[in-house]
Amino acid sequence: MNIVACVKQVPDTEAQIKVKGDGSGIEEGGIKWVMNPYDEFGVEEALKLKEKFGGEVTIVSMGPARTMETIRTALAMGAEKGIQIDDPALYNADAYATAEALAAAIKGVPYDIIFCGQRSIDDDSAQVGSILAEILGIPQVTFATKLEIDGTAVKATRPIEGAAVVVATSLPCVITATKGLNEPRYASLPGIMKAKKKPVDIKKAADLGVSGASKSKVAKFTPPPARPPGKILCADDTPEGKAAELAKLLREEAKVI
């Protein structure tokens, strides 16, 4: 089975995000970069399928030079080869332009199934996997928490509000992974050593025949609205007294209960 897993390098979940003074972006200094956690579930599922059915896992990622580190992490987990799309024309690509570039890169490799994270935890768009499927003209199941493959038949479970739906489709398809799909493995030390020698192809927008033109842009970044300072409730020192004060404030001041 030929498997593609798309990954993105993002700031770690514990990173503080500071907006640049002119609102043109975020300050990247001091950020620890990691593989997008939802993409890790995709890579893990790709490796599990390879272990079950045989075949190869190709990692595709778009981003500047530092992105290579994330591709190597996926290779160290067990993927065979990588494609890095690195072109300044694509550094601020929106979801559509990103999916277009990924699709162009993926068209060059055989694939039966493609994994993406359900969203990247930086711009939180939750679009790229779906657009990719549309451009490639193949079915998709998003937010998958369980995946079963039998021949070319695919069954994927996706949670919706208050229920979960089991969607049946067929290969080739795009699956976007969410938490619950699996427990991503850690790269082993031998895996890390081997990953250094695995092939990674670097592509420019022109190699892929894409312009990199986005449909949307972030006109301005702003810090989150400041919250007014809160109150520590201590009119009465007992838990009961504090609870009574809270109930009163929620009822009379906040008017939320």
Binding site: D122, S216, A219, T222, P224
Partner: peptide, 10 residues
């Protein structure tokens, strides 16, 4: 964006 660590005007 970034789960609310900043906001964007799109």
């Amino acid at each position: 964006m970034y789960a609310g660590k900043c906001f964007g005007e799109i």
